[in-house]
Structure formats: structure tokens, C-alpha cells
């Protein structure tokens, strides 16, 4: 598939929960998650994000995050990797769901981003 989805959250449960939710709308899509710290606590981990990026089989990645350090770690990852990652400052659940639905039917990036525009909250 052209696009894969990456979910970065401070909480492992939120990351997995969002994945489960959007899988319903996008069963074919590669969806990988990085939730919580390395030892499963609340927080974010660059290492987990790196693994989730490596595991993602999309040619390009659409990335969604929740709070401050998830965003900063994601931005560090974007600076470090050669893989094309698009980061969206939108409501996590709604944004990831909308993007997954559209990516599943191979909508162009332009359409996906237009749909995400009103969901921008940060």
C-alpha cells in the first residue's frame, strides 16, 4: 500500500485501542503503534517509535500523536529517518480514523489532507 498509519501515544492502551478502532475501517492497511515508555509506563519512547516506523509496510507514513513529548519524539524520528513521514496536528482518534478510511481505498494524499484540515486542534 502507498500509505501506512503510525499511532504515537503516551499510553500503550490508547495506542492499541486506536489501532483496533481504525482497523475496522481499514483492514488492509499497515497500522503500527508506539505507546508508552520502554518499560510500559506513561510517556513516550523514541525507540518504540523507531520500531513502529521500521515495522510499517506503507511506502509513506501518516503519523498521528496525542501529547507534547509524543510530538517531539515523533519530530526527532522524522529528522533521523529517510522514510517519508507526514505528521498531522489533528485530533488523534478522529484524524487517524478519517485518514485510515481514505488510505484504505487508496485516496490521494491531497484528499486525505483536505479531510484532516478541519480536525486540526494543535
Amino acid at each position: 500500500m502507498k500509505y501506512g498509519i503510525l499511532i504515537v501515544s503516551h499510553s500503550k492502551d490508547i495506542a492499541i485501542g486506536v489501532k483496533k478502532l481504525i482497523e475496522q475501517a481499514a483492514p488492509k492497511l499497515s497500522i503500527t503503534t508506539a505507546g508508552g515508555t520502554d518499560d510500559g509506563e506513561i510517556g513516550s519512547s523514541l525507540e518504540k517509535i523507531q520500531t513502529a516506523v521500521e515495522k510499517n509496510s506503507g511506502d509513506e507514513i501518516l503519523a498521528f500523536y496525542d501529547l507534547g513529548s509524543s510530538k517531539m519524539n515523533l519530530e526527532m524520528m522524522i529528522e533521523m529517518t529517510d522514510k517519508k513521514i507526514h505528521k498531522y496536528d489533528v485530533a488523534l482518534v478522529e484524524g487517524a480514523y478519517a485518514a485510515a478510511t481514505l488510505a484504505e481505498i487508496e485516496s490521494p494524499l491531497e484528499t486525505i489532507e483536505k479531510t484532516l484540515e478541519p480536525l486540526k486542534i494543535k
Partner: peptide
């Protein structure tokens, strides 16, 4: 710091 801090100060001090 990037790998172990976990909060926002990790990527900040790390960067």
C-alpha cells in the same frame, strides 16, 4: 536522555 527520560524533557534536553 532521549531514550530514557520518557517525558517532554527527554526530546528537549536530548535535542
Amino acid at each position: 536522555l532521549i531514550q530514557k527520560v520518557g517525558g517532554a524533557s527527554g526530546p528537549l534536553y536530548g535535542t
